[in-house]
């Protein structure tokens, strides 16, 4: 009985062990992907509902500021789809303007404050929806 035969036998055993164990432990390859946070469909939906109800009359369907109530408003309602405007304002700015109204952020009082009507969650959802109006 020489050494190489021993080694062969051990290799055989080791191979058997591997064959038996490996199929049992398919470890799920789980990698943490670096995805940016994105709003859920639910948030968009809630935002859309609130926008349609409370904002659309002045800001219009597409956010262009052409709602049915806008024609005799001076100053005219903000065009929310304007890319420059979207870029300039942070989410916090938009939420603040919705919460405190035009007079609260030093703009026209014709934009009413919604902070007593909508809660923070709803305002965030509206901001999410307004972001989706960007042209």
């Amino acid at each position: 009985m020489n050494a190489s035969a021993h080694a062969r036998r051990f290799l055989l055993l080791a191979a058997l062990l591997v064959v038996l164990i490996v199929p049992g432990c398919h470890r799920a390859a789980h990698t943490v992907a670096a995805a940016p946070p994105r709003p859920t469909q639910y948030q968009v939906e809630i935002g859309r509902t609130i926008y349609k109800h409370d904002c659309q009359a002045c800001h219009g369907d597409t956010g262009a500021g052409d709602g049915s109530n806008s024609f005799n408003l001076d100053p005219h309602p903000r065009d929310l789809g304007d890319p420059a405007f979207q870029k300039k304002k942070s989410d916090a700015d938009l939420a603040d303007a919705i919460r405190r109204g035009g007079s609260g952020v030093g703009l026209s009082a014709l934009m009413p404050p919604w902070g007593h009507t909508l809660n923070d969650r709803q305002i965030d959802a509206v901001v999410v929806y307004v972001r989706s109006l960007k042209r």
Binding site: S68, N69, G102, S103, S108, L110, P112
Partner: peptide, 19 residues
């Protein structure tokens, strides 16, 4: 009435929104 911007939706006399 003026500072709250009520006129954006309501008409008094001849001025204001129609909402």
């Amino acid at each position: 009435y003026t500072t709250l911007g009520c006129r954006s939706c309501h008409i008094i006399g001849s001025s204001g929104g129609y909402y």
